[in-house]
Design a protein around this nucleic acid. Sequence first.
DNA 1: ATCCTCCCCTAC
DNA 2: TAAGGTAGGGGAGGAT
Length: 1102
Amino acid sequence: MPVLRSTPFQTRALTGMERKANVYRLKASAVQDFITATLASGSQSSEYFEDEDPAFLNALDATVLPGDVQAPANSVPENNDESDSDDNPEPPPPGQPQPQPSLKRRRYDGPDPVDEVIYGAAEFGNFGQYMKRKRAKLQIQNSEINTTTAETQIFKGVTVYVNGWTSPSVQEIRSLLVRNGGIFEPYLAKHSMVTHIVTCALTEAKMREFKNMKVVRPEWLTESVKARYLLPWRDFVFVQDARPAPASTQAPAAPAQPQTAQLQIPRYAADASNPNAQRAMADAQWRNANTSAAPGFIKGYFEHSRLHFLSASKAQLQELVREAQARAESNLEQKEKENLEPDSPAKGKGRAGDGRVIMHCDFDCFFVAAGLVTRPQMRGKPVVVCHSQGAQGGSSSTSEIACASYEARAFGIKNGMSLQQARKLCPTILTVPYEFERYTDLSLKFYTVLMSHADDVQAVSIDEALVDVTTAVSRLRRAAESVGSPHDPAKDFAERIRAEVKQATQCEISIGISHNILLARLATRRAKPAGALHIVAEDVPALMATLDITNLWGFASSHREKAMEKLGSTALKDLASKSRAVLSEALGKKTGEKLYNAIRGIDDTQLSSDKQRKSVSAEVNYGIRFESSEAAEKFIFDLAGEVEVRLNEIKMLGRTITLKIMKRDPSAPVEPPKFLGHGACEVFNKQTPLVGPGGRATSDAKAIGDHAWRILQSFNFDPKELRGIGIQIQKLEPAVGPVNTGANQRTLNFKPMEVRRPPAAAVPVRPASPAAPNNNNAGPSTSADVSLPSIEEVDQDVLDALPPEMRQELEDAWRRRSESPFPGKAPAAPLIPHVPRPPSRPPSRAPSIAPQSAVVLPQRRSAQPTRMHQGALRLAPRSGGGYVIDKTSIHPNRPPNAFLRPTDADLRNLNIDPEVFALLPQAVQREQLTVARLIKTRGALPEVSGERLILKPKKYIPPPNLFRQPPPYAKYPEKPKLRTQGKSKGEKVFFTETDDVQGLLEAWVNAFKRFGPEEKDIEFFAKFLVQSVESADTGVERAVAVVKWWLVLLRRYWGDYEHFDELGYDAEDAKVAEAWWKAFRDVKERIDLVARKKFGGKLSLR
DNA sequence: ATCCTCCCCTAC
DNA sequence: TAAGGTAGGGGAGGAT
Ligand SMILES: Nc1ccn([C@H]2C[C@H](O)[C@@H](COP(=O)(O)OP(=O)(O)OP(=O)(O)O)O2)c(=O)n1
Ligand SMILES: [Mg+2]
């Protein structure tokens, strides 16, 4: 296969209706306190700006930053809309380079030249221009809203951001809005700026970003204008039934079609229904035989689910490897005892550095290859493995393709795609049924070969493993060196393994070799099909230059979106120039660092082959269709039985349970496009303690079922709306004593330390028993308890026996925690009534426990169905009630006018004098809080210092002499208050007192002018500055001022080094200088990043 | 700081 | 017909 820009692994090619995403629904109905960004917040900013010392600003305006010299021209060309370019379907024929007809939204929102100047994302010229721009913008908004053009006030209070390509166009929407009293926000610096998002299509990253916002289709606006009043936005919620990668349902042509189609479906769901499903579901008999209501549904489902098979196989293989290792280790010990020389260094665990040799071994299109073992006539043809066989389903089968042959992939068919879509790409496609047992069989042979050569093995999946072959390869290498062979011993060894596997399985595997896992995985991609490739460190730069971020293992679409949005590119060659800090800012700390290292070919991840499980779960999100709560209840208990079996198989008991519910999104059709699929859903998770008999951890199906069922009742959902149910058990502990697991144990052997066995000899293969029959034995503790009352009764009895006060207290506690599995009597008229199961609590004995907060009456739920948004069902919000000053108060998402005064206690806790605080203007108060909290977070020790941070308004007007007259540090000898504390290495800064950020900054530079800045301190300032820019409008000016001040300080000490680059300083002074300048450039870059996102320009420090 | 909980995301 | 599961890494944000 030719190497194209887009590799086989690069997932792209989506179309509108079903998009890649494992976000199953767009949650657009969340009720939040959206507060329109008000003009007041803008004026606060001006107010603050005028508070600033003008002389200071003047002085700093004269300073020039190197990065700014070419700054106005080098603003990154923005792709404001990353969604559309993703919508191009894959080209049908093999390997055509894609011209990438990306559809970019214009950066300017109107033809009006005023708009272009004012609204445009132009670069900042300078400070003054920025302010001018901002004021002009406010004026325009003012006039549009209040005077000049508004014809009606239909959209009064509505502020809208338009995402991506829309029909009608952005310009039309803007015009519609402002003519009718609404506000149009051209940039979405933060979510609280707007009340609604208008869109016709969302990338999954945007879906995530907007998940708690009101996302509507443009019809909301157009129809409202027609109706001459504001229609309920809920009737126009934008919803997508999103699915992971290749599951697009669109034909190759007409990229713009999804949007168009969507617009043609007025008033509801963005995704269509499935007529076949509707027809089938209309038949009660069919329903009772084929959906979750059918007897034995769960068992049949798990027997046929490929994804379940993959997950279960992985767990089994990991277990096999663990056992093999334990055996190998005990053999080794044995040998050592016998004083036999182990012929290799101790097994490769923890071996670090580049000395390792890692092989990543992976079957080529595994399921197909396995299927073709007995169908040799199909070799070389486009073949897929899926449930639908032959001509079943015709051209409209929603059956998913588990695996496509390479010939099929040449047509653009991918693993995970629906058959109907594949048929569009290749009408002659051949289908092959699943053969799970054969997969297991082949896999075991494969693992057997690997383990016979390995120091260590990590089971990645049924068809894939990571193998540490350091020992074997070094032995070969020594041999090769003595002979002077030009061959790469690692590659030779890989070919030998490939041959052995081929011999044992009649299937091809490919092997990637390198000194770390990351590169080994990359090597495999290039090795396929049927090859081996060794990547060495020298290959890294050239290799990485060709790759996209999503080619790296663990990086997928969400990172791709973030990278494009925040860093302007997803190509590793572009990302290579970004600093660690910049990448972390964009992708998160760990992820950013992982990427930074990956680009350089660095990955010190160790093989993990002995991790213990932390949770056990079972879920079904297919075919869930209930007519009654009884059916749902039965299902829950059946599922609990499955969970019990799985717990027993690994001899574990659990202490907490989480119920996961997928519920049809109100705007999604009853039958989604995918046959019996879940469609667009709201997802709810709720965790409670799992209390077994005697308060112990348990695996008991009844206990699990009881808890799960109670949780489900507490949701009070209409059973007809359920689309997915899952039970997860956490806080696992080993079951002691005999537990009948019913699991068939298999054994494999690791490479013997001395005598090597022929491969495949050690495999006593027996087919897996997919769900071992429930032996109804919940372990030693419960097996004796079968005749005891159920937990709910025990609990009730205990409750009843308690003195009233104590009981009240308990009930209160439960209510507070909102996680009691024992809510007592079902609420009035529940949609899923509690059906008493014998022996059940008589209703008259219903405890006085009030229904929990979430157990609301149906009317109320339907009135406010969205209060439980986004799965995170917090029955009683832990902290959401009154406004409590905490980190969220400085969070950018908080609307400006949601600022409430913190309590005096809060203030004292921050070392702020409440009385002084009260006198400050609100904008200044907020800043004070920000700074004080950051300082506290950073490690202030208020109790120790005993000094109180006294805040004065004038603090925002830095003493003129301080800022005007260098050298700055000389100006306040008493000021620094930086206590350095000897730590393990270097010195750590603690801020015990500060008056203002500039002072702090200066003290920092002073304190470390002989050492260079500490990473943590840089991080601290960077965070503060980024936060400033991101948050309230006042923050920008502050950030600019602080950065300018920093620049002044650096120039003061190290001006000579400003324009030098990294290279070649010997002098310690120079190193320190360079460290400071590097810190400065990094931080500046990070701020620019945020500034670009918010304003479309970068900060000028002139 | 460090933990925990509730997500989202990723891989096969 | 069709079988959209599952565990763990990681981030955000709150509790301790
Ligand atoms: N969405 C997916 C992805 C994979 N699989 C199954 C079928 C595959 O055969 C097997 C292994 O997945 P791989 O990612 O290794 O893909 P293949 O082995 O099919 O192809 P190759 O490894 O050659 O790229 O997992 C699946 O059922 N559904
Ligand atoms: Mg494979």
